[in-house]
Write a protein that binds this DNA or RNA. Structure first.
Lengths: 236, 236
DNA sequence: TAGATTGTTAATCGATTAACAATC
DNA sequence: TAGATTGTTAATCGATTAACAATC
């Protein structure tokens, strides 16, 4: 949701809208499931249902990639998997580092979805020296002192921050200085980054708060009703 | 991002746009930080910077809530904290259950952001009987068999699913049947839910794929350049 | 009063959707 | 050929932004 993409007129690298880019992984997942079931072709209607969108939107999205379907028939599953993967850049190898190996960092390290999609965990790092050498998801945790060397040696361009909020900005700065240009941030902080660096944020608390907002509305509908609108008084 | 809100014309429960609702937690976090520093008032410009948005957007967002600022002065921090909390429904208690206590579930249970905002973890549940009784974040893990009883006894309306993809839909069905009407889903699956149930999805793999897309563009800009456009041939 | 800053307007932009001509 | 389904158009809708009048 919060992506800083200041290096470009945004939303149309090569003409593909951000909203479309954000849905390509959904299509890809649905297609991968079909592929595993050896389904040869799929219609926009079927695929849209599987991905949880409507078919008009899906066809519009695909139209930005090219004309990969066949009228009257649908889309070739394997061909589309390849085209979307290529478009997303998943046909190449992306070494990532995960910084902060608490429960969350460990969960990320163990997450199967990483490896299966061209993302390779190059290293796990933590500031806690006591953790160094410990195996997590089969990889030894390394001390944060090694950050710069690891990023450079492995040509890491994507960093995942799973540290406490207080450490996030410093880790971010070090990653960026070492050459990382994309950051996935799980710490509940707004990160400041220079131009050309992308930050995406995953915030558990924010998602819950949005749910609470809607939940509150549901309760209001059924029973007690909203308790008045804007108060007329101002703060003291 | 993927929310099904079929019980309403969406995007304007009481007139507040979805995009605005999604930003209220950001403002709230920035305001909480200011509050802790005992800052009495803040301008839209300062607060916007802290939240990572521009000030025009912030003022527009706040205008949906009411006129809580003072021209020439700014916003009273405490007052605004209260108003946004109230709007989001955080002035009440929200019991939540977390289902699936692997690394991710444990990370969620330990996440401080929950408790601090009216969210109370009513129970941790897992299908693995061997885990039952084990303490995680000070709470005993309970067996999934108890799901219905726990949801009913605690009046839980928000459920968090941190199970493997294969188990997610069944857990979701059971939660919904037991009375849960909002679900935060960490499993990489599209959940089917009846009308009136909200689902929000957090997907680690999707966020990484979006980063990879932009990362690929950056590489293309500097060096090798995009390798031709839409191919002229169709699948075999 | 003069300076500062909000709240709102209006223009612009991007995303969604229905409908259907093109075409397999 | 007849039926099915894509790819695209055009209308609509929602979100963003700059600018500024209102007003503290």
């Amino acid at each position: 949701m919060a992506t800083s993409r200041s290096h470009r007129p945004a939303t149309r690298s090569r003409g593909i809208p951000e909203a479309t880019v954000a849905r390509l992984p959904l299509y890809l997942r649905a297609l991968t499931t079909l592929s595993e079931r050896s389904v040869p072709t799929v219609s926009s209607e079927e695929l849209a249902t599987a991905a949880g969108v409507n078919s008009a939107k899906l066809r519009k999205d695909f139209s930005y990639l090219g004309s990969y379907g066949t009228r009257g028939v649908g889309y070739d599953v394997e061909y589309l998997v390849y085209q979307i993967s290529r478009e997303l850049g998943l046909t190449q190898d992306w070494p990532v580092v995960i910084v902060g190996i608490g429960n969350l960092g460990a969960a990320l390290a163990n997450y199967g979805g990483f490896a299966s999609r061209g993302f390779r965990v190059a290293a796990l790092m933590d500031a806690d020296a006591a953790l160094a050498g410990k195996l997590v998801a089969g990889l030894p945790v390394r001390h944060i002192d090694e950050l710069e060397a690891i990023v450079e040696d492995n040509q890491v361009s994507i960093g995942v921050i799973a540290t406490p909020a207080g450490a996030a900005q410093e880790v971010c700065d070090r990653l960026v200085t070492a050459g990382v240009t994309s950051i996935l941030n799980f710490a509940p902080t707004v990160l400041q980054v220079p131009e050309g660096v992308d930050v995406r944020k995953v915030d558990l608390s924010i998602e819950l708060q949005i749910l609470a907002f809607h939940e509150q509305r549901k309760a209001g509908e059924q029973g007690q009703g909203p308790d008045g609108d804007v108060p007329a008084v101002m703060p003291a």
